[in-house]
């Protein structure tokens, strides 16, 4: 390559505009990458999306599904964090019942594993319940409304990841629950790799939020 060799687009004349667009897009992508990895941007977004938790007495603690379980029956990191957070809320006496959601069939693997874990850690069997089958957060909200409203349960502590909370809170409120948000730790990671992973999750969640709004589910 010679000293004055232009980039691909400039060399090919008519394709210069496309190449320029690609360079702008590439620069923007690298800027986002750098800001995401080396600044607290993702953590700040995490905190902002979590909103203010309301850890007050409720009728039930609802733990949303997240990530399922591996083939060897181990809960994913997010699922386990939510489960442990729910157990902490229960131990603090904020609600007499924990409802674990998760799984496409009644008693799906994620919810079943979470319930086993809770019972194994000393929560009475009658204080642990497995939610109905659900594919999406909206399905979870509708299924739990159908099951819990009939028993007079409307005031719930909702356990979800911070970034999931705006959509989850909205869709549960929409089906008639009084939602007390109980997000898992919202401070966010401090390592570049984990920050980028969080940034990716935030991007996906924002797309989900837009989809739910367009579908009229919020």
């Amino acid at each position: 390559m010679g000293a004055a060799e232009p980039s691909l687009g400039r060399r090919r004349g008519g394709r210069g505009a496309a190449a320029h667009g690609l360079r702008v897009l590439g620069a923007a992508a690298l800027l986002v990458l750098a800001l995401g990895a080396f600044t607290p941007l993702a953590s700040l977004a995490n905190i902002w999306m979590a909103g203010s938790g309301r850890l007050e007495p409720a009728q039930a603690i609802v733990v949303l599904a997240r990530g399922g379980a591996d083939a060897d029956g181990v809960l994913t990191n997010s699922s386990l964090r939510r489960t442990m957070h729910a157990l902490d809320l229960y131990r603090r006496g904020l609600a007499p019942l924990i409802v674990f959601s998760g799984g496409i069939a009644e008693g799906g693997a994620e919810a079943r594993l979470r319930a086993q874990l809770a019972r194994g850690l000393g929560v009475p069997a009658d204080a642990v319940e497995i939610g109905p089958a659900a594919r999406t957060t909206r399905d979870e909200a509708r299924g739990l409304a159908a099951r819990l409203h009939g028993r007079g349960i409307r005031r719930i502590l909702l356990v979800a990841n911070p970034i999931d909370m705006p959509r989850a809170r909205g869709v549960f409120a929409r089906v008639g629950f009084t939602v007390l948000p109980a997000p898992t730790a919202a401070s966010g990671p401090s390592q570049p790799e984990d920050r980028l992973a969080l940034l990716t999750d935030i991007g996906v969640e924002l797309l989900g939020l837009v989809y739910y709004r367009l579908a009229g589910w919020l």
Partner: peptide
């Protein structure tokens, strides 16, 4: 290698990043 060619290389790298984003 000619140091002045670095600028063109950087521009091509940005084009690549743009393509990867697309």
């Amino acid at each position: 290698l000619d140091r002045r060619a670095l600028r063109g290389a950087g521009a091509r790298a940005l084009e690549w990043a743009g393509l990867a984003t697309l």
